[in-house]
């Protein structure tokens, strides 16, 4: 399914989620972004383009960053979670939820969305 429509559809079903976006870490392009609170758009965009660095293991001695399947950033106010798309590991999905969200459930849901994104982009 197309990325934009998938994330729009998934976000519509989760009123507790603030934003969903998808980044192609190879090209550096943001392929889709849905934000419920327009005031957070800049932060969501910044978090999305940070996927290249934040969803990768620390660089090795020869500066190679290995992609990781998922990562998350949790503060008192926000949970930002990243999940790689299994069918195209260059793609990373970002989800953003309020800080009181259940982090484990939110990550599980984001992985489910990541499984829906990819093949037909």
């Amino acid at each position: 399914m197309a990325i934009s429509s998938t994330i729009k559809e998934e976000l519509a079903q989760r009123p507790d989620v603030v934003a969903l976006a998808c980044m192609d870490t190879r090209s550096g392009l943001v392929l889709g972004m849905e934000v419920r609170d327009e005031g957070e758009r800049d932060n969501v965009e910044f978090a999305t383009v940070s996927a290249t660095q934040l969803c990768a293991a620390p660089p090795s001695d020869d500066d190679v960053e290995e992609p990781v399947d998922e990562s998350f950033v949790v503060s008192q106010r926000w949970v930002h979670a990243y999940a790689r798309v299994p069918s195209d590991r260059d793609l990373v999905l970002l989800g953003m939820a309020p800080g009181n969200a259940n982090v484990a459930l939110f990550r599980d849901w984001l992985k489910h969305v990541a499984e829906r994104v990819g093949p037909d982009r």
């Binding site: 990781v68 998922e70 998350f72 008192q76």
Partner: peptide
């Protein structure tokens, strides 16, 4: 430094190990 640009300064970053 990167996370500090879009969320609270004291946020915790977690990576699953490859």
């Amino acid at each position: 430094d990167v996370t500090g640009a879009f969320t609270d300064r004291e946020a915790m970053l977690t990576l699953s190990s490859p």
